[in-house]
Design a protein around this nucleic acid. Structure first.
Lengths: 222, 222
DNA sequence: CGGTAAATTGACCTGGGTCAATAAATGTGG
DNA sequence: CCACATTTATTGACCCAGGTCAATTTACCG
Protein backbone atom coordinates (compact mmCIF):
# COMPACT_ATOMS: atom_id res chain seq x y z
CA UNK A 1 0.00 0.00 0.00
CA UNK A 2 2.68 2.45 1.02
CA UNK A 3 4.85 1.59 -1.97
CA UNK A 4 1.85 2.33 -4.16
CA UNK A 5 1.78 5.89 -2.86
CA UNK A 6 5.23 6.47 -4.28
CA UNK A 7 4.67 5.01 -7.74
CA UNK A 8 4.86 8.28 -9.63
CA UNK A 9 7.61 10.76 -8.84
CA UNK A 10 8.27 14.34 -9.79
CA UNK A 11 11.50 16.34 -9.49
CA UNK A 12 11.53 19.89 -8.15
CA UNK A 13 14.22 22.54 -8.51
CA UNK A 14 15.48 24.50 -5.52
CA UNK A 15 12.98 27.27 -4.87
CA UNK A 16 10.24 25.55 -6.87
CA UNK A 17 6.70 25.77 -5.50
CA UNK A 18 4.76 22.52 -5.20
CA UNK A 19 1.54 23.92 -3.77
CA UNK A 20 0.61 27.56 -3.49
CA UNK A 21 -1.45 28.93 -0.59
CA UNK A 22 -5.08 29.21 -1.63
CA UNK A 23 -4.73 26.83 -4.60
CA UNK A 24 -7.49 24.33 -5.15
CA UNK A 25 -5.93 21.06 -4.20
CA UNK A 26 -6.80 17.38 -3.99
CA UNK A 27 -3.37 15.77 -3.94
CA UNK A 28 -1.01 14.77 -1.20
CA UNK A 29 2.71 14.07 -1.52
CA UNK A 30 5.49 12.01 -0.04
CA UNK A 31 8.88 13.73 -0.02
CA UNK A 32 11.43 11.20 -1.23
CA UNK A 33 14.55 13.37 -1.63
CA UNK A 34 15.71 16.83 -0.54
CA UNK A 35 14.43 19.43 1.94
CA UNK A 36 11.20 21.36 1.59
CA UNK A 37 9.31 23.87 3.70
CA UNK A 38 5.75 25.03 4.20
CA UNK A 39 4.99 28.66 4.90
CA UNK A 40 2.34 31.36 4.84
CA UNK A 41 2.69 34.94 3.63
CA UNK A 42 1.07 37.75 5.61
CA UNK A 43 -0.51 40.92 4.28
CA UNK A 44 2.57 42.99 5.00
CA UNK A 45 4.68 40.65 2.87
CA UNK A 46 6.41 38.91 5.75
CA UNK A 47 6.71 35.15 5.71
CA UNK A 48 6.29 32.60 8.48
CA UNK A 49 7.84 29.24 7.80
CA UNK A 50 5.68 26.63 9.52
CA UNK A 51 7.93 23.61 9.21
CA UNK A 52 10.72 22.04 7.26
CA UNK A 53 10.13 18.71 5.56
CA UNK A 54 12.57 15.87 5.09
CA UNK A 55 12.61 12.59 3.15
CA UNK A 56 9.78 10.35 4.35
CA UNK A 57 7.52 13.21 5.40
CA UNK A 58 4.04 13.43 3.94
CA UNK A 59 2.82 16.83 2.78
CA UNK A 60 -0.45 18.43 1.87
CA UNK A 61 -2.66 16.98 4.60
CA UNK A 62 -4.70 20.14 4.65
CA UNK A 63 -6.27 19.03 1.36
CA UNK A 64 -8.03 16.42 3.48
CA UNK A 65 -10.04 19.16 5.10
CA UNK A 66 -9.94 22.43 3.21
CA UNK A 67 -10.91 23.06 -0.37
CA UNK A 68 -8.00 25.46 -0.79
CA UNK A 69 -4.51 24.98 0.51
CA UNK A 70 -3.79 26.83 3.73
CA UNK A 71 -0.04 26.98 3.13
CA UNK A 72 2.58 27.15 0.41
CA UNK A 73 4.91 24.18 0.02
CA UNK A 74 8.22 24.89 -1.67
CA UNK A 75 11.59 23.23 -2.23
CA UNK A 76 14.50 24.43 -0.11
CA UNK A 77 16.92 22.24 -2.08
CA UNK A 78 16.47 20.19 -5.26
CA UNK A 79 13.87 17.56 -4.39
CA UNK A 80 11.91 14.56 -5.56
CA UNK A 81 8.29 14.17 -4.50
CA UNK A 82 5.71 11.42 -5.06
CA UNK A 83 2.16 12.75 -5.52
CA UNK A 84 -0.91 10.65 -4.78
CA UNK A 85 -4.61 11.36 -4.81
CA UNK A 86 -6.46 11.82 -1.56
CA UNK A 87 -8.77 9.02 -2.72
CA UNK A 88 -5.88 6.72 -1.76
CA UNK A 89 -6.41 7.80 1.83
CA UNK A 90 -10.10 6.95 1.59
CA UNK A 91 -9.11 3.39 0.68
CA UNK A 92 -6.33 3.34 3.26
CA UNK A 93 -8.70 4.27 6.07
CA UNK A 94 -11.17 1.63 4.96
CA UNK A 95 -8.79 -1.26 4.36
CA UNK A 96 -5.77 -0.69 6.60
CA UNK A 97 -6.67 0.19 10.17
CA UNK A 98 -3.10 -0.13 11.39
CA UNK A 99 -1.80 2.20 8.72
CA UNK A 100 -4.51 4.74 9.36
CA UNK A 101 -3.71 4.63 13.06
CA UNK A 102 -0.08 5.26 12.20
CA UNK A 103 -1.17 8.18 10.07
CA UNK A 104 -2.88 9.57 13.17
CA UNK A 105 0.33 9.07 15.07
CA UNK A 106 2.30 11.06 12.50
CA UNK A 107 -0.28 13.83 12.65
CA UNK A 108 -0.05 13.95 16.42
CA UNK A 109 3.71 14.15 16.30
CA UNK A 110 3.43 17.05 13.91
CA UNK A 111 0.85 18.69 16.14
CA UNK A 112 3.09 18.38 19.18
CA UNK A 113 6.06 19.80 17.31
CA UNK A 114 3.85 22.73 16.32
CA UNK A 115 2.93 23.32 19.96
CA UNK A 116 6.64 23.37 20.70
CA UNK A 117 7.01 26.10 18.08
CA UNK A 118 4.13 28.05 19.60
CA UNK A 119 5.75 27.90 23.04
CA UNK A 120 9.12 28.88 21.59
CA UNK A 121 7.73 31.85 19.67
CA UNK A 122 5.52 33.00 22.51
CA UNK A 123 7.81 32.61 25.45
CA UNK A 124 11.49 32.13 24.62
CA UNK A 125 14.35 34.41 23.58
CA UNK A 126 15.88 34.73 20.15
CA UNK A 127 18.91 32.70 21.18
CA UNK A 128 16.71 29.92 22.51
CA UNK A 129 14.72 29.70 19.30
CA UNK A 130 17.79 29.48 17.11
CA UNK A 131 19.28 26.81 19.36
CA UNK A 132 16.06 24.81 19.22
CA UNK A 133 15.88 25.07 15.44
CA UNK A 134 19.41 23.74 15.06
CA UNK A 135 18.56 20.71 17.17
CA UNK A 136 15.26 20.12 15.43
CA UNK A 137 16.86 20.12 12.00
CA UNK A 138 19.66 17.91 13.16
CA UNK A 139 17.19 15.35 14.51
CA UNK A 140 14.82 15.57 11.56
CA UNK A 141 17.60 14.79 9.11
CA UNK A 142 17.89 11.32 10.64
CA UNK A 143 14.86 10.68 12.86
CA UNK A 144 15.69 7.02 13.38
CA UNK A 145 19.38 7.51 14.08
CA UNK A 146 19.98 6.93 17.80
CA UNK A 147 23.29 8.81 17.79
CA UNK A 148 22.84 11.61 15.27
CA UNK A 149 25.80 13.42 13.77
CA UNK A 150 26.98 16.55 15.53
CA UNK A 151 28.11 18.05 12.24
CA UNK A 152 25.71 18.57 9.35
CA UNK A 153 24.90 20.88 6.45
CA UNK A 154 22.25 23.27 7.64
CA UNK A 155 21.09 23.98 4.09
CA UNK A 156 19.16 27.10 5.08
CA UNK A 157 19.87 30.76 4.59
CA UNK A 158 19.80 32.98 7.65
CA UNK A 159 16.71 34.61 6.22
CA UNK A 160 14.98 31.22 6.19
CA UNK A 161 16.06 30.57 9.76
CA UNK A 162 14.62 33.96 10.66
CA UNK A 163 11.33 33.30 8.93
CA UNK A 164 11.06 30.02 10.81
CA UNK A 165 11.91 31.47 14.22
CA UNK A 166 10.08 34.77 13.95
CA UNK A 167 13.29 36.81 13.77
CA UNK A 168 15.06 38.96 11.21
CA UNK A 169 17.99 37.60 9.25
CA UNK A 170 20.20 40.20 10.91
CA UNK A 171 19.33 39.03 14.38
CA UNK A 172 19.73 35.37 13.42
CA UNK A 173 23.25 36.24 12.39
CA UNK A 174 23.92 37.85 15.77
CA UNK A 175 22.53 34.84 17.61
CA UNK A 176 24.56 32.35 15.57
CA UNK A 177 27.71 34.31 16.27
CA UNK A 178 26.82 34.44 19.94
CA UNK A 179 26.27 30.68 20.08
CA UNK A 180 29.62 30.31 18.37
CA UNK A 181 31.36 32.62 20.86
CA UNK A 182 29.76 30.68 23.70
CA UNK A 183 31.45 27.59 22.32
CA UNK A 184 28.16 25.80 21.69
CA UNK A 185 28.48 25.52 17.92
CA UNK A 186 31.12 25.86 15.21
CA UNK A 187 30.54 26.96 11.64
CA UNK A 188 32.37 26.59 8.34
CA UNK A 189 30.77 27.15 4.93
CA UNK A 190 27.20 26.01 5.34
CA UNK A 191 28.08 23.29 7.84
CA UNK A 192 27.28 23.50 11.53
CA UNK A 193 28.81 21.47 14.32
CA UNK A 194 26.94 21.15 17.59
CA UNK A 195 29.74 21.25 20.15
CA UNK A 196 27.46 20.99 23.17
CA UNK A 197 24.07 19.58 22.24
CA UNK A 198 22.84 19.10 25.84
CA UNK A 199 23.48 22.74 26.65
CA UNK A 200 21.82 23.82 23.41
CA UNK A 201 18.79 21.72 24.34
CA UNK A 202 18.64 23.36 27.74
CA UNK A 203 18.96 26.86 26.35
CA UNK A 204 16.41 26.16 23.63
CA UNK A 205 13.97 24.27 25.82
CA UNK A 206 14.21 21.54 23.25
CA UNK A 207 12.58 18.12 23.49
CA UNK A 208 13.17 15.52 20.81
CA UNK A 209 9.68 14.46 19.78
CA UNK A 210 10.94 11.39 17.98
CA UNK A 211 11.59 9.93 21.43
CA UNK A 212 9.22 8.87 24.20
CA UNK A 213 6.73 7.28 21.80
CA UNK A 214 4.23 4.69 22.95
CA UNK A 215 2.48 2.93 20.10
CA UNK A 216 1.21 -0.10 22.01
CA UNK A 217 -2.43 0.79 21.32
CA UNK A 218 -2.11 0.42 17.54
CA UNK A 219 -4.49 -2.13 16.05
CA UNK A 220 -2.91 -5.17 14.34
CA UNK A 221 -2.37 -5.21 10.57
CA UNK A 222 -5.40 -6.62 8.82
CA UNK B 1 -20.09 4.58 19.20
CA UNK B 2 -19.71 8.27 19.94
CA UNK B 3 -22.36 8.20 22.63
CA UNK B 4 -20.39 5.37 24.25
CA UNK B 5 -17.41 7.66 24.64
CA UNK B 6 -19.43 9.96 26.86
CA UNK B 7 -20.91 7.33 29.17
CA UNK B 8 -19.00 8.31 32.27
CA UNK B 9 -18.67 11.96 33.22
CA UNK B 10 -16.60 13.87 35.73
CA UNK B 11 -17.03 17.42 37.02
CA UNK B 12 -14.10 19.79 37.35
CA UNK B 13 -13.86 22.98 39.38
CA UNK B 14 -12.53 26.19 37.88
CA UNK B 15 -8.74 25.97 37.94
CA UNK B 16 -8.76 22.21 38.37
CA UNK B 17 -6.09 20.24 36.52
CA UNK B 18 -7.26 17.28 34.45
CA UNK B 19 -3.89 16.16 33.10
CA UNK B 20 -0.50 17.40 34.21
CA UNK B 21 2.42 17.77 31.82
CA UNK B 22 4.67 14.74 32.07
CA UNK B 23 2.02 12.54 33.71
CA UNK B 24 1.74 8.97 32.57
CA UNK B 25 -1.49 8.92 30.68
CA UNK B 26 -3.67 6.51 28.71
CA UNK B 27 -7.01 8.30 28.71
CA UNK B 28 -8.64 10.75 26.35
CA UNK B 29 -11.54 13.07 27.16
CA UNK B 30 -14.49 14.76 25.57
CA UNK B 31 -15.32 18.17 27.01
CA UNK B 32 -19.08 18.32 27.55
CA UNK B 33 -19.48 21.57 29.48
CA UNK B 34 -17.36 24.65 30.29
CA UNK B 35 -14.09 26.03 28.93
CA UNK B 36 -10.68 24.44 29.36
CA UNK B 37 -7.17 25.16 28.17
CA UNK B 38 -3.98 23.29 27.46
CA UNK B 39 -0.62 24.83 28.25
CA UNK B 40 3.04 24.18 28.88
CA UNK B 41 5.26 25.69 31.55
CA UNK B 42 8.81 26.73 30.67
CA UNK B 43 11.89 26.55 32.86
CA UNK B 44 11.69 30.22 33.79
CA UNK B 45 8.15 29.73 35.11
CA UNK B 46 6.38 31.38 32.20
CA UNK B 47 3.35 29.71 30.70
CA UNK B 48 2.31 29.32 27.09
CA UNK B 49 -1.35 28.50 26.56
CA UNK B 50 -1.58 26.30 23.48
CA UNK B 51 -5.33 26.35 22.93
CA UNK B 52 -8.67 26.83 24.57
CA UNK B 53 -11.17 23.99 24.51
CA UNK B 54 -14.92 24.20 24.24
CA UNK B 55 -17.82 21.75 24.54
CA UNK B 56 -17.49 19.03 21.94
CA UNK B 57 -13.71 19.22 21.74
CA UNK B 58 -11.68 16.08 22.36
CA UNK B 59 -8.62 16.37 24.59
CA UNK B 60 -5.56 14.31 25.35
CA UNK B 61 -4.70 13.10 21.88
CA UNK B 62 -1.05 13.18 22.76
CA UNK B 63 -1.60 10.04 24.83
CA UNK B 64 -1.99 8.29 21.48
CA UNK B 65 1.64 8.87 20.80
CA UNK B 66 3.65 9.74 23.88
CA UNK B 67 3.96 7.81 27.07
CA UNK B 68 3.86 11.00 29.09
CA UNK B 69 1.60 13.96 28.50
CA UNK B 70 3.22 16.81 26.61
CA UNK B 71 0.87 19.45 28.01
CA UNK B 72 -1.21 20.34 31.02
CA UNK B 73 -4.99 20.44 30.58
CA UNK B 74 -6.88 22.57 33.10
CA UNK B 75 -10.33 24.03 33.60
CA UNK B 76 -10.80 27.73 32.88
CA UNK B 77 -14.38 27.60 34.18
CA UNK B 78 -16.31 24.89 36.00
CA UNK B 79 -16.49 21.98 33.56
CA UNK B 80 -17.78 18.50 32.89
CA UNK B 81 -15.58 16.04 31.01
CA UNK B 82 -16.15 12.49 29.77
CA UNK B 83 -13.05 10.28 29.99
CA UNK B 84 -12.56 7.23 27.78
CA UNK B 85 -9.72 4.79 27.32
CA UNK B 86 -7.54 5.01 24.26
CA UNK B 87 -8.43 1.40 23.59
CA UNK B 88 -11.74 2.81 22.38
CA UNK B 89 -9.83 4.46 19.57
CA UNK B 90 -8.21 1.18 18.61
CA UNK B 91 -11.69 -0.25 18.10
CA UNK B 92 -12.92 2.88 16.40
CA UNK B 93 -10.13 2.78 13.85
CA UNK B 94 -10.80 -0.88 13.15
CA UNK B 95 -14.58 -0.80 12.98
CA UNK B 96 -15.58 2.69 11.89
CA UNK B 97 -13.58 3.99 8.94
CA UNK B 98 -15.81 7.03 8.46
CA UNK B 99 -15.45 8.04 12.09
CA UNK B 100 -11.72 7.56 12.05
CA UNK B 101 -11.49 9.70 8.92
CA UNK B 102 -13.49 12.38 10.73
CA UNK B 103 -11.07 12.11 13.62
CA UNK B 104 -8.29 12.86 11.13
CA UNK B 105 -10.28 15.84 9.93
CA UNK B 106 -10.55 17.21 13.46
CA UNK B 107 -6.84 16.72 13.97
CA UNK B 108 -6.07 18.57 10.75
CA UNK B 109 -8.29 21.47 11.75
CA UNK B 110 -6.45 21.68 15.04
CA UNK B 111 -3.14 21.51 13.23
CA UNK B 112 -4.11 24.34 10.90
CA UNK B 113 -5.31 26.48 13.80
CA UNK B 114 -1.93 25.87 15.43
CA UNK B 115 -0.13 27.03 12.30
CA UNK B 116 -2.25 30.17 12.47
CA UNK B 117 -0.97 30.68 16.01
CA UNK B 118 2.61 30.16 14.90
CA UNK B 119 2.22 32.77 12.16
CA UNK B 120 0.54 35.17 14.57
CA UNK B 121 3.24 34.79 17.23
CA UNK B 122 6.09 34.91 14.76
CA UNK B 123 5.00 37.69 12.49
CA UNK B 124 2.17 39.87 13.82
CA UNK B 125 1.88 42.73 16.32
CA UNK B 126 0.43 42.57 19.80
CA UNK B 127 -2.75 44.28 18.68
CA UNK B 128 -3.20 41.79 15.83
CA UNK B 129 -2.80 38.81 18.14
CA UNK B 130 -5.35 40.08 20.63
CA UNK B 131 -7.82 40.82 17.82
CA UNK B 132 -7.34 37.34 16.39
CA UNK B 133 -7.85 35.72 19.80
CA UNK B 134 -11.13 37.54 20.31
CA UNK B 135 -12.41 36.28 16.98
CA UNK B 136 -11.17 32.77 17.54
CA UNK B 137 -12.90 32.49 20.89
CA UNK B 138 -16.09 34.00 19.54
CA UNK B 139 -16.16 31.43 16.72
CA UNK B 140 -15.16 28.49 18.89
CA UNK B 141 -17.99 29.15 21.31
CA UNK B 142 -20.45 28.24 18.55
CA UNK B 143 -18.55 26.62 15.68
CA UNK B 144 -21.72 25.64 13.81
CA UNK B 145 -23.48 28.96 14.21
CA UNK B 146 -23.51 30.73 10.81
CA UNK B 147 -24.18 34.16 12.34
CA UNK B 148 -22.34 34.14 15.67
CA UNK B 149 -23.14 36.63 18.40
CA UNK B 150 -21.16 39.86 18.43
CA UNK B 151 -21.44 40.06 22.22
CA UNK B 152 -20.18 37.27 24.46
CA UNK B 153 -18.55 36.57 27.82
CA UNK B 154 -14.83 36.27 27.24
CA UNK B 155 -14.36 34.25 30.41
CA UNK B 156 -10.59 34.79 30.46
CA UNK B 157 -8.38 36.96 32.61
CA UNK B 158 -6.01 39.32 30.86
CA UNK B 159 -3.17 37.19 32.15
CA UNK B 160 -4.65 34.18 30.36
CA UNK B 161 -5.04 36.19 27.17
CA UNK B 162 -1.41 37.19 27.52
CA UNK B 163 -0.22 33.64 28.07
CA UNK B 164 -2.12 32.60 24.95
CA UNK B 165 -0.82 35.42 22.76
CA UNK B 166 2.74 35.57 24.02
CA UNK B 167 2.24 38.94 25.75
CA UNK B 168 2.20 40.25 29.31
CA UNK B 169 -1.09 40.94 31.06
CA UNK B 170 -0.15 44.62 31.19
CA UNK B 171 0.28 44.86 27.46
CA UNK B 172 -2.92 42.91 26.81
CA UNK B 173 -4.68 45.57 28.83
CA UNK B 174 -3.16 48.31 26.70
CA UNK B 175 -4.15 46.54 23.48
CA UNK B 176 -7.74 45.98 24.64
CA UNK B 177 -8.07 49.62 25.53
CA UNK B 178 -6.62 50.57 22.17
CA UNK B 179 -9.09 48.33 20.32
CA UNK B 180 -11.81 49.96 22.39
CA UNK B 181 -10.62 53.47 21.55
CA UNK B 182 -10.45 52.50 17.88
CA UNK B 183 -14.15 51.65 18.12
CA UNK B 184 -13.57 48.00 17.24
CA UNK B 185 -14.81 46.49 20.48
CA UNK B 186 -16.77 47.49 23.57
CA UNK B 187 -16.35 46.07 27.07
CA UNK B 188 -18.45 45.84 30.23
CA UNK B 189 -17.69 43.48 33.11
CA UNK B 190 -16.31 40.39 31.46
CA UNK B 191 -18.40 40.75 28.32
CA UNK B 192 -16.96 41.84 24.99
CA UNK B 193 -18.85 43.16 21.99
CA UNK B 194 -17.21 43.00 18.59
CA UNK B 195 -18.32 46.25 16.98
CA UNK B 196 -16.46 45.68 13.74
CA UNK B 197 -15.60 42.03 13.22
CA UNK B 198 -14.45 42.40 9.59
CA UNK B 199 -11.92 45.06 10.57
CA UNK B 200 -10.77 42.95 13.53
CA UNK B 201 -10.26 40.03 11.16
CA UNK B 202 -8.21 42.19 8.82
CA UNK B 203 -6.07 43.58 11.63
CA UNK B 204 -5.60 40.17 13.18
CA UNK B 205 -5.03 38.32 9.92
CA UNK B 206 -7.77 36.02 11.07
CA UNK B 207 -9.29 33.19 9.03
CA UNK B 208 -12.19 31.19 10.40
CA UNK B 209 -11.02 27.59 10.10
CA UNK B 210 -14.51 26.21 10.64
CA UNK B 211 -15.27 27.45 7.12
CA UNK B 212 -14.00 26.33 3.73
CA UNK B 213 -14.15 22.64 4.64
CA UNK B 214 -14.31 19.93 1.97
CA UNK B 215 -15.14 16.50 3.34
CA UNK B 216 -16.20 14.84 0.09
CA UNK B 217 -13.41 12.29 0.31
CA UNK B 218 -14.69 10.71 3.52
CA UNK B 219 -15.41 6.98 3.22
CA UNK B 220 -19.05 5.90 3.76
CA UNK B 221 -20.25 4.68 7.14
CA UNK B 222 -19.78 0.92 7.42
C1' DC C 1 35.68 37.40 -14.21
C1' DG C 2 31.70 40.15 -13.41
C1' DG C 3 27.18 39.63 -11.08
C1' DT C 4 24.02 38.25 -7.68
C1' DA C 5 22.68 36.11 -3.42
C1' DA C 6 24.07 35.62 1.29
C1' DA C 7 26.52 36.90 5.44
C1' DT C 8 28.34 40.41 8.58
C1' DT C 9 28.61 44.49 11.21
C1' DG C 10 27.60 49.04 13.24
C1' DA C 11 24.41 52.82 14.61
C1' DC C 12 20.21 53.80 16.07
C1' DC C 13 15.09 53.09 17.12
C1' DT C 14 10.76 51.07 18.99
C1' DG C 15 7.31 47.63 20.48
C1' DG C 16 6.51 45.43 24.17
C1' DG C 17 8.45 44.15 28.88
C1' DT C 18 9.22 45.43 33.87
C1' DC C 19 8.11 47.52 38.07
C1' DA C 20 5.16 49.72 41.07
C1' DA C 21 1.11 51.95 42.65
C1' DT C 22 -3.91 52.20 42.61
C1' DA C 23 -8.61 51.03 41.60
C1' DA C 24 -12.24 47.82 40.65
C1' DA C 25 -14.33 43.46 40.97
C1' DT C 26 -15.19 39.20 43.15
C1' DG C 27 -15.60 36.16 46.79
C1' DT C 28 -16.13 34.76 51.86
C1' DG C 29 -17.42 34.32 56.38
C1' DG C 30 -20.32 36.21 59.77
C1' DC D 1 -26.42 42.64 53.82
C1' DC D 2 -21.68 44.15 55.37
C1' DA D 3 -16.41 44.33 56.28
C1' DC D 4 -12.50 42.35 54.73
C1' DA D 5 -9.32 39.60 51.66
C1' DT D 6 -7.92 38.25 47.28
C1' DT D 7 -7.94 38.49 42.39
C1' DT D 8 -8.06 41.15 38.45
C1' DA D 9 -7.78 45.38 35.89
C1' DT D 10 -5.60 49.84 34.98
C1' DT D 11 -2.12 53.27 34.45
C1' DG D 12 2.41 55.66 34.40
C1' DA D 13 7.55 55.71 34.14
C1' DC D 14 11.27 53.66 32.39
C1' DC D 15 14.13 49.91 30.02
C1' DC D 16 15.90 46.49 26.65
C1' DA D 17 15.64 42.66 23.20
C1' DG D 18 15.18 42.61 18.85
C1' DG D 19 14.03 45.41 14.61
C1' DT D 20 15.56 48.77 10.93
C1' DC D 21 18.69 50.83 7.85
C1' DA D 22 22.82 51.02 5.49
C1' DA D 23 27.37 49.73 4.28
C1' DT D 24 30.72 46.11 3.43
C1' DT D 25 32.43 41.69 2.77
C1' DT D 26 32.19 36.93 1.36
C1' DA D 27 30.46 32.99 -1.21
C1' DC D 28 28.51 31.15 -5.14
C1' DC D 29 27.57 30.78 -10.28
C1' DG D 30 27.17 30.98 -15.10
Amino acid sequence: MLAGLEERTRPLRRGGVLVRENDLQTELFVLTRGTMMSYVLLDDGSRQILRFLFPGDMMGFSSLVYRRSVETIAAVTDCVVAPFDRGCLTRLVGDHPRLSAMMMVMNQMERVMLTDRVAALGRTSAKARVAALLLEIRNSLAPTDPSPRACFALGLTQEEIGDATGLTAVHVNRMLRQLEQDGLIARENGRVTLLNAPMLARIGNYVNRFEGLDLSWLPPAR
